[in-house]
Design a protein around this nucleic acid. Structure first.
Lengths: 165, 165
DNA sequence: CCTTCGAGTTCCAAAAAAGAACTAACAAAT
DNA sequence: ATTTGTTAGTTCTTTTTTGGAACTCGAAGG
């Protein structure tokens, strides 16, 4: 399977990864959330080659995650800004950051702390159920295939014991 | 910057991506959450080459996300199971899935629905503040660099107006 | 002895990334 | 008028990573 086929898969994770499933893309989005908007600023902060950066920005624009908006004419210059679709990736990015804070930080702790203006506390992200607000754990979620995919998406559990095993 | 340098970066997202920052790795984890445990089952479901699959599984084991546990001797066979560190990636994976359900699903809707056993409802993941429980939005989060990195991690905002712009 | 199973490894061709230099369209300085 | 600087890329060559298919190892079964 190649990049081009990923977004055709009947799987929301695969489809999401067809947009953000590579390390540079997610680092570009991280910098967008930090307020970076311009080509040369991305390049300087990321240490990515200009070639790859140009490609990733183009893909993100095509995917509707970022938009090029002009900030001057003569010469025309454009910067990259989030669309709503892009800004909604915040939760996914924060979930990845929270995992990294917990499992990949050295002895000194996380390099960046997040303070929630609403409550004033240093916090991390917790994923909860949209309906009842309880934190999500794998074994509490039951999966239901949409009718048109019955029996095609979930594994047959030939050997598996359980999700938590 | 290459894979090998990513985990040295003072950024929890970069460090997380040094483990899961590629499309195959995250699809392997998806299947793990669905109960897949064995090499040939991953290969059949993913459509990845055995070569790359072997590499990704090895990386995940080295990172402490999966563990090889024997399920028979003579001949010895091992399967891949989550560690706690790995199982805690569930929130990040679900956040990516929720975004895909919302923005990448076709007219027929998401291929898989998630029902929360606790409340019985079809749900999606919502990332909330660990301290006050409010859903996270970018502009409500204030970033604070750890003392040893003062001024080195966050951009200078030479041109940027605001995170939401 | 020959085949099957499970979990890989090996080999070659094709695609993608790294790294560095170059271009276009202008503005400002010498 | 020519040189220098800025921004956002493109082009070129070398190295690395994938894709695709075949092959190996250790054992069990017929």
């Amino acid at each position: 399977m190649r990049w081009e086929e990923l977004d055709q898969q009947p799987c929301s994770l695969a489809r999401t990864l067809s947009v953000v499933g590579d390390r540079w893309t997610l680092l570009v989005l991280r910098d967008c959330f930090l307020g970076v908007r311009r080509f040369d600023d991305f390049e300087a902060r990321l240490g990515v080659t200009r070639h790859v950066l140009a490609d990733r920005l183009k893909r993100l624009v095509e995917a509707g995650v970022l938009a090029k908006v002009p900030y001057q004419e003569r010469p025309r210059r454009e910067e990259y800004r989030f669309t709503e679709k892009g800004r909604d990736l915040y939760q996914a990015v924060m979930a990845l950051v929270s995992w990294g804070d917990r499992y990949m930080a050295g002895a000194e702790g996380a390099p960046i702390r997040h303070r929630h203006k609403g409550c004033g506390q240093v916090m991390h992200g917790v994923l909860v159920c949209s309906e009842c607000g309880e934190p999500l754990v794998p074994k509490e979620i039951e999966l239901e295939e949409a009718p048109e995919w019955q029996g095609q998406l979930l594994p047959a559990h030939r050997h598996a014991r359980s999700v938590e095993g």
